[in-house]
Design a protein around this nucleic acid. Structure first.
Lengths: 233, 233
DNA sequence: TTAGCTATATATAAGCT
DNA sequence: TAGCTTATATATAGCTA
């Protein structure tokens, strides 16, 4: 009687060459499993050692997945801006891409501040000028600096005409005033408008994020969320 | 004769509870090993599946380590700005921290553009006003809109005085001109200065980064660099 | 995609240098 | 810290459902 040898149920884990898996389906399956493994390892690392970790992965198909503890937000902030809660760590410089990005951000931020300042300056100056123009149109000190001695004949004549008109106007007004015998005074304002440009915007400094392990399948927003041993979604 | 049983050389890998390792030294050792393991897994994932991965890890002591393929820079850019090389992936929204960061960046960027525009506007307006003031101080149309009929007695008197002075000036100038019997003309400019504000700055769009696997020990910049099977530093 | 199922390849805890 | 070593815990390739 022959023992029927059971066929092996599985050939077990096979060794694979460390190179791109050409079969598309196999590649996709491998990606799913290994991405899960990677995130699990990251979770363990953060639990066992209290490490803070952020991961972003793009699948071969181009889908973004992310992991973060305490949150990707926190990691990004700490890495880019040199650690919000100051553990004595300061990233001083590097050609690691992310940090370059951080510098760009700082630069953008600074430029933003600079522009805001310049804009306010320009507005003030504009207000001053408007006030000046207004004052000149209305006021006492008006034709003071006209450089008559540089005028040509034609200009001089038209200017003279204007003066005569004004003189007539003055005379008329004087009569009016005398007739009415009153001392009405008109108050005028030369004060530039208040612009109230105060609060500084800062796009980089985020409110603290909740602490936990985030596993994000970023594209379609179905993300599960692990806190301690439990999973939420 | 007794066989001398060799003492076990090692008790082998022990199962450990998935909770924070309290012994500081053990925790640090575990971190080193597992960080290495994590980065290796990430490398394999990117090789086998062509995935693009970025990782940032802060050690329990606070030291930052990073991994990136093709580079952290690239990953950051692709994740934040929604994929530069457009694989049809667009990250539309999420409460995943990193992406919030991305939105902040976009916002900051837009605000930057807006401010630049406003600044230019303010500058133009200022230039116009300056021109106007200049024109009024020098020119023909000067005292035209003075509202003499609204002046009070005092203002009227001082204005009248100014008019007289000007009239004297005009008379003098007329004499000068007659005497010199010449028709000198003075050209004047009222054109606002050219401001030339053109090129747009954009802090977010980076030049493409080299492709490879970067393992970064960010703090002291000793980073090794793997390309294919080989390591460089 | 995701979920089992082996059987095996790998990762790693402990201890030592 | 960083390497070894060994024995064991885990991860995962290849399959099936």
């Amino acid at each position: 009687m022959m023992m029927v040898r059971k066929k092996r149920q599985s050939m077990g884990r096979q060794k694979i060459a460390m190179k791109r898996i050409e079969n598309e389906e196999a590649r996709q399956v491998c990606f799913s499993k290994r991405r899960t493994g990677l995130f699990k390892k990251a979770t363990e690392l953060s639990i066992l050692c209290g490490a803070e970790i952020g991961i972003v992965v793009f699948s071969p198909a181009g889908k973004p997945f992310s992991f973060g503890h305490p949150s990707l937000d926190y990691i990004t902030k700490r890495f880019l801006d040199g650690d919000g809660n100051d553990n004595g760590v300061k990233v001083v410089g590097s050609w690691c891409g992310m940090f370059v990005e951080g510098q760009k951000l700082l630069q953008l931020n600074q430029e933003h501040a600079g522009l805001t300042e310049k804009l306010e300056e320009a507005r003030k100056r504009r207000a001053e000028l408007e006030a000046e123009v207004a004052a000149q149109q209305v006021g006492s000190g008006l034709p003071c600096d006209v450089e008559v001695h540089e005028m040509g004949a034609e200009e001089l004549e038209s200017f003279h005409k204007r003066l005569e008109e004004l003189r007539r106007g003055v005379a008329n007004r004087r009569e009016e005033l005398e007739i009415l015998c009153m001392d009405k005074k008109v108050a005028r304002e030369g004060v530039p408008p208040q612009l109230g440009y105060g609060g500084g915007y800062n796009g980089l400094y985020l409110t603290p994020a909740p602490i936990g392990w985030f596993y994000g399948h970023t594209q379609d927003m179905n993300m599960s969320f692990q806190f301690g041993d439990r999973w939420y979604s």
